[in-house]
Amino acid sequence: MIKEIDITDPKFAEEVLDVQIPSYKVEAELIDFYDIPPLRDTVITLQRCGETFYGCYVDGELGGVISIKVEEELIDIHRLMVYPKHFRKGIAGRLLDFVESYGEGDETLIVSTGSKNAPAVHFYEKSGFVKIGEMTVMEGLSITSFEKKRK
Results as ranks from 00 to 15, higher is better:
79 R>D: 08
32 D>S: 15
133 G>N: 12
34 Y>R: 12
94 R>K: 14
121 V>A: 04
26 V>G: 05
19 V>G: 00
25 K>S: 14
105 G>T: 10
109 L>G: 06
116 K>H: 09
129 F>D: 00
78 H>C: 09
51 E>L: 10
13 A>W: 05
5 I>E: 03
1 M>G: 15
142 S>V: 07
22 P>A: 06
10 P>R: 06
17 L>G: 01
96 L>F: 08
108 T>V: 11
105 G>D: 05
60 G>R: 02
46 L>V: 01
80 L>H: 00
134 E>G: 00
38 P>W: 15
33 F>D: 00
25 K>D: 04
138 M>N: 08
48 R>Y: 09
134 E>W: 14
145 S>D: 07
48 R>I: 01
78 H>I: 08
112 S>H: 13
69 K>M: 10
62 L>Y: 05
125 E>K: 15
109 L>K: 06
131 K>H: 07
142 S>C: 08
58 V>I: 15
50 G>A: 09
97 D>G: 04
30 L>N: 13
140 G>C: 13
40 R>P: 05
62 L>K: 09
94 R>D: 04
73 E>W: 07
63 G>Q: 11
102 Y>P: 01
37 P>M: 06
17 L>D: 02
143 I>Y: 05
41 D>G: 03
66 I>T: 01
145 S>W: 01
115 S>A: 15
49 C>A: 15
107 E>N: 07
113 T>P: 04
111 V>Q: 02
65 V>T: 04
39 L>T: 08
106 D>R: 11
117 N>I: 01
138 M>P: 00
96 L>H: 02
56 C>F: 14
50 G>V: 05
14 E>V: 03
111 V>Y: 01
123 F>P: 00
77 I>E: 05
